[in-house]
Design a binder for these strands. Structure first.
Length: 172
DNA sequence: CCAATTTGACCTAG
DNA sequence: CTAGGTCAAATTGG
C-alpha cells in the first residue's frame, strides 16, 4: 500500500531527483513497548548512501549481519537516552530484494523533544550524493503530498515544510 | 576535548 | 548452540 509519495527537486546545479515512498506502516505492541514498522522507499537517480532522517537524533550502537539478508541490520537509539532518559530505539534494514527500500522498526516512545522539522540539504554535493535529513513521521506521511512549497524553497540549501506537523498522537 | 561510529565481544531467549 | 540484540573499547572526526 502506497500511503504517500514525495518528490524533491534538487537545486538547479544538481540534476537529481529524489523520491520517497512511504509504502507501509504498521503499529503493534509487544511486551508493553510501542512498536512501529515502516517501509521507506528511497529513489535517487544517482545514488543514496543512507536512509532518510526521520527528524530525531539517533545514535548508532550496533550492526548485525542477519541470516538470509543481503544487508546488515543497523541498530539506533535516541541520542538523548542519558540526558532525557529517552529510550526510543529503531532498527533499519535495507531490503534484499530492493536496495532502495528500507524497513524501519521503531521501538518505544520518544520522551525527548523532537529536534527539528527542517530538511537539511546542505550536505548534498554537486554529484548528487549526500545525507538528506528528511523529517517525517508515520502519522504525517499520509498527509504529505504537496510539492510546490518544496520546489519554491529549494533554491536555498535548506528549507522547511511550513505545514509539517511537529508532533503526532503517538509521540514519534 | 568531546561526542559519534565502528566492530568484535558479550548476553540471552528460544 | 544459534541468531539476534546490546555493550563498550578503540577509533574517527569536529
Amino acid at each position: 500500500m502506497n500511503i504517500g509519495t514525495h518528490e524533491i527537486l534538487f537545486p538547479p546545479m544538481v540534476h537529481t531527483n529524489l523520491r520517497i515512498n512511504f509504502t507501509e506502516r504498521r503499529k503493534y505492541n509487544s511486551g508493553g513497548v510501542v512498536r512501529w514498522k515502516q517501509q521507506v522507499k528511497v529513489n535517487l537517480e544517482i545514488g543514496l548512501e543512507v536512509p532518510p532522517n526521520d527528524g530525531y537524533m539517533w545514535r548508532k550502537y550496533g550492526q548485525k549481519e542477519i541470516l538470509n539478508a543481503k544487508y546488515p541490520r543497523e541498530y539506533y537509539r535516541c541520542t538523548y537516552r542519558n540526558t532525557h532518559g529517552c529510550c526510543a530505539t529503531k532498527q533499519v534494514q535495507r531490503s534484499s530484494q530492493d536496495p532502495s527500500t528500507f524497513d524501519i522498526t521503531y521501538l518505544g516512545k520518544h520522551t525527548c523533544p523532537k529536534i527539528s522539522k527542517t530538511n537539511d540539504m546542505s550536505s548534498v554535493t554537486e554529484s548528487g550524493y549526500g545525507l538528506i535529513n528528511f523529517s517525517s513521521t508515520p502519522e504525517s506521511a499520509s498527509n504529505y503530498s504537496r510539492t510546490s512549497d518544496v520546489s519554491s524553497a529549494i533554491t536555498r540549501n535548506s528549507f522547511e515544510l511550513s505545514n509539517w506537523p511537529l508532533t503526532d498522537s503517538r509521540g514519534f
